[in-house]
Design a protein around this nucleic acid. Structure first.
Lengths: 224, 224
DNA sequence: GGGCCAGCTGGAACGGCGTTCCAGCGAACC
DNA sequence: GGTTCGCTGGAACGCCGTTCCAGCTGGCCC
């Protein structure tokens, strides 16, 4: 690994898994998941597709590695020792939300792969706090999974929305367009959706997401 | 549409959007999302790829239509008038779970497309019951979205799991394998996950899912 | 009844993708 | 100094979604 050469630099930085994953994240952030192409990646790295395969098994592994790279910081954030379990879960979820918000393509990837490290680490992080909440052991798994699945749902949905939106339009326009669509729905078929359409315009995704977390936490602690 | 010929039958059933979508669902159920190919579909329909495009705009629309076809029955199930809102939500969620369980490829599709009918219909169905729960108006949107996102999370996760599993292995083997993996994790890094690993072996996905619904419902009604 | 026309068909072709293959290069080791 | 081996990168393969278009066919008008 740590090969040393007497020459001050190689004619260019050698390929490495890390450099490839970094480039992949940049590409994904710029042009979305469908834009991550071995050819485009090779061009960005000034090499050919074949060289990349020496370091990474295929597209699936590349996506998993990129997701891991982007989500890991949120999971590494040390849990402040003086926080309540509720606060710790809110912080973890909020950090995760920010990471997915910055890199929407990572949302749907969170749950993929046979034993994806990110998924397990999220479950573990949540589970510990659930234990700290004094939830009876038989209910801990359900409580942690409910929170996890809610987070995964929001993560995936975030990705679907940002995929829809035109790169040009900003967030307010987008919300306004959706709200208008909802308000025009058939009153007989969609009474509820029409009622809440107005709330869309002023809502904040992150706060809404955390309000959902609080709702589930309330349910977890409801029976004492 | 209803063209009549004097001949007892046309040499073959004419193509139609419905016939195409039906064939697509069969293909998806058999070989998964990556197996849905315009060529394979054309072969199954004894035609060429070009003919399909006369009825359907592209792969995305085909997937959306297939998802709709598979999920619609669960949403059409008339809500029994004498059920409590909680029961109604449990029934809706359970029906949805069964549909996704039978057609895992549909899970990740639920949230796609600009204004996907299935998503809105689920939100509407949940929202009405949330209103019936006497949730204050300002909190209705959050409550309904939390339930919706949880459902979407489970749906997506279900798809990821069934995608991983070998077609040969059955469910018990799969759970056992995951439980074993979890039990072997580093005790320092994954104390919680290790503790709950054993529960995996005896757990029932559907019951677990509904327990999560109940948890959220408890949170919604916790503050009265 | 004969010609026209529009709806519909299906096969060929295009560009691009993930992936594989392999000839070759340069540094490190005997 | 020769050999070896980790690594490179360009060419090629097979498959994909999609487009194009020549042609069929069945209903309509003259």
């Amino acid at each position: 690994m740590a090969t040393r050469t007497r020459h001050p630099e190689r004619r260019q930085e050698p390929l490495s898994r890390e450099r490839i994953v970094d480039a992949a994240v940049e590409l994904l952030d710029t042009v979305g998941e469908s834009g991550l192409t071995f050819r485009a990646l090779a061009e960005r790295l000034a090499t050919g597709p074949g060289a990349i395969y020496w370091h990474i098994a295929g597209r699936a592994e590349l996506l998993a590695a990129a997701t891991d790279a982007v989500v890991a910081p949120a999971l590494d954030a040390a849990d402040a020792a003086d926080a309540t379990p509720q606060e710790a879960i809110r912080t973890l979820a909020g950090d995760l939300f920010d990471a997915i918000d910055d890199h929407p393509w990572a949302g749907p990837q969170l749950g993929r792969a046979p034993a994806p490290p990110p998924l397990l680490r999220i479950l573990e992080g949540i589970g510990r706090q659930v234990q700290a909440l004094q939830v009876p052991e038989a209910a801990q798994f359900t409580a942690a999974c409910t929170l996890l699945n809610y987070i995964l749902g929001v993560a995936g949905q975030n990705a679907a929305n940002t995929g829809t939106v035109q790169p040009g339009t900003d967030r307010a326009e987008f919300l306004d367009a959706v709200a208008t669509t909802w308000a025009r729905l058939d009153p007989d078929q969609y009474p509820f959706t029409r009622t809440v359409a107005g709330q869309l315009r002023t809502h904040d995704d992150r706060e809404e997401f955390l309000a959902g977390i609080d709702l589930i936490l309330a349910g977890i602690t409801a029976g004492r």
